[in-house]
């Protein structure tokens, strides 16, 4: 459904952020991309979002090439990026301004309810907590009914309690329309709790280190419990793949 074929991205400075990456993602699949900083995972999302152009390779969504932002692809960033001059409801409806008014308002009302902010549509973004703001950002991306939702470390700026809450919100929202999720995270537990498949990336240049399926069924629409023996075994496996990368990164630090 989503095909990344030989995807490369080299920055003008010569840094090779992504080298020849190939990945197939099925419809409704949840894929987590984990890796240390600088492994190209955010670059990968920006390419799929159409915000950046690849230096080589192709991205296809249901056979259609993606070269610019596509209506079938939504994105949630690390920060909520709400528009400060729009109310919560207006923010959620920002991307569906082209829809008829009744349809738009119905979608906004449903979304507000799903993220637990029913009755708060008239509030300003400055009045929201970090977790509430990120829930609004999730809703803003999802009301446009994307086939693929990209999440760029969406919960990393939140405290552990709020993060768990948002993971539950994400799963509940996902259950509604079951889009394909591409979730970039550096939190292995988060990847294990949410994903069907985990792509572990390695840096210099950014590439796929290994790919793991998470066999444990997820109690829908809930995140999977972490800390089970199976999860711990997978976590050790992922850490093993990441370890060489971490040692490489530790070397220059040690030299200083």
């Amino acid at each position: 459904m989503l095909r990344l074929d030989g995807l490369s991205r080299t920055y003008p400075t010569g840094t090779q952020a992504l080298a020849h990456l190939t990945l197939d993602v099925g419809a409704g699949e949840i894929v987590a991309i984990v890796g240390g900083s600088g492994c190209g995972k955010s670059t990968l999302l920006r390419l799929v979002a159409g915000l950046d152009r690849p230096s080589g390779g192709r991205i296809e969504l249901d056979g259609e090439a993606i070269t610019a932002p596509h209506p079938g692809v939504g994105i949630v960033f690390q920060e909520p990026r709400l528009l400060a001059w729009l109310t919560v409801a207006q923010n959620i409806g920002f991307g569906i301004a082209h829809l008829p008014r009744a349809e738009r308002e119905a979608r906004i009302a449903t979304a507000l309810e799903r993220i637990g902010l029913a009755g708060h549509g008239g509030r300003w973004p400055r009045e929201l907590s970090g977790g509430q703001a990120q829930r609004v950002a999730l809703a803003r991306a999802l009301v446009a009914r994307p086939r693929v939702l990209l999440l760029d470390e969406p919960f990393s700026a939140l405290d552990a309690f709020t993060r768990a809450d948002l993971q539950e919100h994400l799963m509940a929202l996902w259950e509604d329309s079951r889009p394909t999720l591409l979730l970039v995270t550096h939190d292995i537990d988060e990847a294990l709790a949410l994903a069907d498949r985990i792509v572990v990336m390695r840096p210099h240049p950014g590439r796929i280190g290994t790919m793991l399926s998470v066999p444990t069924a997820r109690p829908r629409p809930q995140p999977r419990p972490t800390g089970t023996p199976e999860a711990e075994a997978l976590k050790r496996q992922i850490l093993n793949v990441l370890r060489p990368a971490r040692q490489q990164m530790a070397l220059p630090a040690a030299a200083e």
Partner: peptide, 11 residues
Amino acid sequence: RRIIEVGRSFR
């Protein structure tokens, strides 16, 4: 730049 990207992502 980041809020401009929000606009771009919605085409």
